[in-house]
Design a protein around this nucleic acid. Sequence first.
DNA 1: CCAAAAGTGTTAGTCCTACACCCATGT
DNA 2: ACATGGGTGTAGGACTAACACTTTTGG
Lengths: 229, 229
Amino acid sequence: MDINKYKSHDRILVAVDCIIFGFDGQQLKALLIKRGFEPERGKWSLMGGFVSKDESTDEAAARVLHQLTGMHNIYMEQLHCFSHVNRDTAGRVISVAYFALINIADYSEQLQLEHEARWFPLNKTPELVFDHGDMVALAKERLRQKVSNHPIGFELLPEKFTLPSLQNLYEAIYEEPLDKRNFTRKILSLGILNKLDEKEKETSRKGAFYYIFDKGKYSKLHQEGVKFI
Amino acid sequence: MDINKYKSHDRILVAVDCIIFGFDGQQLKALLIKRGFEPERGKWSLMGGFVSKDESTDEAAARVLHQLTGMHNIYMEQLHCFSHVNRDTAGRVISVAYFALINIADYSEQLQLEHEARWFPLNKTPELVFDHGDMVALAKERLRQKVSNHPIGFELLPEKFTLPSLQNLYEAIYEEPLDKRNFTRKILSLGILNKLDEKEKETSRKGAFYYIFDKGKYSKLHQEGVKFI
DNA sequence: CCAAAAGTGTTAGTCCTACACCCATGT
DNA sequence: ACATGGGTGTAGGACTAACACTTTTGG
């Protein structure tokens, strides 16, 4: 390594910030934390961290996600690099935003307390520090777009889920109601779901059948993409 | 500004690299330069530059594009942040890649010589330094995706263009032939083109009518997006 | 027996795709 | 007159969108 070649150039602090989406069966939510350090201590913020010189931004984002959730192998995607000169009031920091999808039920209450984290419905997010509000808005848009061509919605659900809950998820993402019959037909026609014999009976008297997805076909569509919903 | 708050963290060199697309009427091309400095001097590379502490990455990319082309207000979009620890052999550099669309005819021969730049057909690009090959591949994919929902293809064409040349462009981007009648019908149905009385007679005896696009409707679709081709 | 959510088909309209011939012109 | 690329319409199939009633079961 010969960093001397570049030594006349500015070196800049680089951070990652994570928009963590979750779904509680009804609403799409984002996990936010109360900032524990200056500047802007005590304000709501995305979970983030600085990128060290021996890790990539992907690695930094995975590290930050692990810190906050205790989970590994979280579905995560780079969103955008935010770099306006004065975006951070305490100095020049470039931030690479990532969005992540987790099953809200897997998220540890324990860590939630430690980090003073809270799930906010996406239409009721508090004011956020810096440009984090822009990040959330962009992530929402990107999720909508992504979900229409790739079956990543399942990342937000538990292993076993019902068709009505899957439909609720899509309605929450698109922020518009979908037709139950059309939805069911389209999803099932993709052939990535396996019906179980078991019913979920919490939310209705009749009960709704559980489904799981077929790993093989799922991951194929995952890569290739299809017109989804 | 109180940078002290963050002083214990690593500061990193940040660069931008630009994938500059052009279209010569037949082929989709990328503008590449012979690297004029170490490391990897003399190898083919994307045009890039370091981000200084008082500019955003967008500003840096626009600056770099201007340096190479002499043009202002180039259509440009952030692609992805590339950050693998060893991506640059001479030190830790994070690079934010941008793709840009220009009308190849506007590009100054003069600057081409100064920078030892050359247009390469996209399927015949030479080996590139570092991860620039990945950047080009990703940009190609992103262009294809973007162009299917947004009328940005026109950025690659001169003000007056013919329907056959527009079709050639789309065929070059998608790397597959399109049906002439279906293409014409779909494009014209968007109502963003105005037919001129004038014909282009270089490429055929009969001559093809020139079109220009209707700024108003064009920019509306530009923002909103539509199913395009 | 009633309330509440689950499950299930059909039809009309729209959009997409495939396909072939005549036209205008320069040589 | 002919070679070259430009311009134009139609029909079948696929997909989408709109729509309402029956089933199950806990209380």
